[in-house]
Nucleic acid binder design. Structure first.
Lengths: 328, 328
DNA sequence: TGTCTTGTTTTGAGCGCTTAAAAGTAGTAT
DNA sequence: ATACTACTTTTAAGCGCTCAAAACAAGACA
């Protein structure tokens, strides 16, 4: 691989001049510039980013620590983050905790060895203690989808207003005339959605039996089970708010098999707006999460933090929107 | 951030000695070793991997170029690759082509600036020309899920035997007594699956009308459309081989709405074995792709290539397996 | 003709680490 | 006491690039 020195030799100048041409930091006579440019293409020079990183203290790399890619939510957000980073000529170093905070911690330790310019840590892929320590050590960290940990409040973050998601979903059901509204949520992960659900009910002065709140684990199967339990109650609910689309789809499946008409007899609303939600029968009413905005904002925030040299602990809360289809 | 020199000062030795303790390349007296180790924890030293990369010529980073993460197949494979890489203390630099080969090319160019020790390029995320050039320039490249391009045959690769997938799916349908077997495939991407389908038919001396081969784009919706077209034929097929599960699910959906009994009147088999395949009604018979093995092999292969200094152009073809459920 | 400017290029140090070779430091054989 | 060995540690030269400061050139000005 050709180096700066090679280019310099061919162009008959010094390495510094070539560097000046490349960075544009210092003016270079046009004639020399052309000579250097010609030499660059002649020897097929490509800058060594490692050397540049060492000399300049910047690697143009962002570390992204995420729990998992099997979860399509994260997969989609990561996809967008990559695009956003690439748009700023940044590369993404991907680290997955695979659902284990200890794995996330280990990754963070390796990454902290002055590798990357900034960190985006999502979905509690490690402990709050770790990220706070990381930020305290002078690294640029942005949190995303981080839940309610008060210790994390000092760090910049961009989150989804999941309480609002639960609230507008439930408000929608109420507006449709429902009063016996059940919920299927995974706790503690979906705690805030549940709170939004409860807030909406309270605002409408509606009370529901304790057993109307069923727990799931965000999977299709758990949605099925919860729905069966809800159907067994007397009287059963006339509407169900599911914490995510997978569980909502499980519920739809059970209702279908049980011959319960959706939405006439029982309405269902989910959260996520996954691709398949449009194609269930009936098509699923759901809450759309602004994943793209989430991704872009997170990237912009770390980059801004890096550019500014310090991070202003801004906290953004992105609002979800209701997508009405035929399940309500 | 503390440096080697800081540690050296505290331990009362020279930087080289600290380096020797760290790398273990040269023996160090036990007493000195302890002093150095103590100094390391005292100053909270973490090696600067950029500097190490520059000095040692190895960055312990692998570049992963993939078309997209929205496709759950890639998401899952990337997840496994990350785990495999991490197990070898390697980090993954993620680059997505977002379905555009030109984007992939651009990524490759940046990455080639001596950044990474090796490359894994999947799903034709760039042109074969690019990867061949990359390998020719001395980089360690492993291809995966690369289709049939003869120009790529010189490069090491690990692929899925998709022809075999189409074949065993079709053989399964034939064994179930079907003879009027249709196919829904995305071309050219799923060309090999189609070939496997045709091979199985031919081996059983079965001929089907031209119109039994329908094209889709791997989406749920395209599966629906293709299925409607197939149902309109007289006589319609008694079995359908779909190139992936999403299209198979679309087909199931149409059959369900049309009141066609599955599998009695019409059998359906997909490819992928996505999580949801187990939960369709009826549960989908499909072909499972060994994603984990694919991921692990790809990583092992680049690492082996890096370790050896040269790449042996091994080509691995992983066999898929039939998962029989209730749709056939 | 000598001194300033202004514009352009070079010098040289340094980023933090690795590594081969040189220099010490015993301990053992002669 | 001297020469050899076997260990340990240090020296010093990079890896490829950036960047501030110095050096140089040449035209402008007095």
């Amino acid at each position: 691989m050709a180096t700066l020195a090679d280019v310099a030799r061919v162009a008959g100048v010094t390495a510094a001049t070539v560097s000046n041409v490349l960075t544009g930091r210092v003016a270079v006579r046009e004639e020399t510039r052309q000579k250097v440019l010609a030499a660059i293409t002649q020897v097929g020079y490509r800058p060594n980013l490692v050397a540049r990183g060492l000399a300049g203290g910047k690697t143009f790399t962002l570390a992204l620590l995420v729990p998992s890619l099997v979860n399509p939510f994260f997969a989609e957000v990561v996809e967008e983050m990559e695009a956003a980073a690439a748009a700023h000529d940044y590369q993404l170093l991907l680290a997955l905790s695979h659902g284990q905070a200890s794995t996330g911690t280990r990754h963070l330790e390796r990454l902290a060895s002055r590798w990357v310019d900034g960190f985006i840590v999502m979905g509690e892929a490690t402990t709050t203690r770790d990220v706070v320590a990381l930020a305290a050590s002078g690294q640029h960290v942005v949190l995303s989808v981080w839940g309610e940990d008060p210790a994390a409040l000092t760090l910049p973050s961009v989150d989804i207003d999941f309480a609002r998601a639960g609230e507008i979903a439930t408000q929608h059901l109420i507006a449709r005339g429902h009063r016996r509204i059940a919920a299927i949520v995974e706790l503690p992960v979906q705690q805030t959605r549940l709170m939004g659900y409860q807030r909406a009910l309270q605002a409408a002065a509606i009370t529901v039996p304790q057993a109307f709140v069923q727990r799931g684990d965000s999977s299709f199967v758990s949605g099925q089970q919860a729905m069966r339990t809800l159907l067994a109650q007397t009287p059963p609910p006339t509407a169900v708010f599911a914490g995510n689309d997978a569980m909502a789809m499980g519920a739809l499946d059970v209702l279908h098999d049980a011959g319960v008409n959706v939405p006439t007899t029982l309405a269902v609303v989910g959260v996520d707006d996954v691709l398949l939600a449009e194609h269930t029968s009936p098509p699923l009413t759901t809450i759309r999460i602004p994943k793209r905005e989430l991704a872009r904002m997170a990237v912009e925030m770390v980059l801004a933090s890096i550019a500014a040299g310090a991070s202003s602990p801004q906290r953004h809360l992105l609002a979800p929107t209701l997508i009405v289809r035929q399940s309500t």
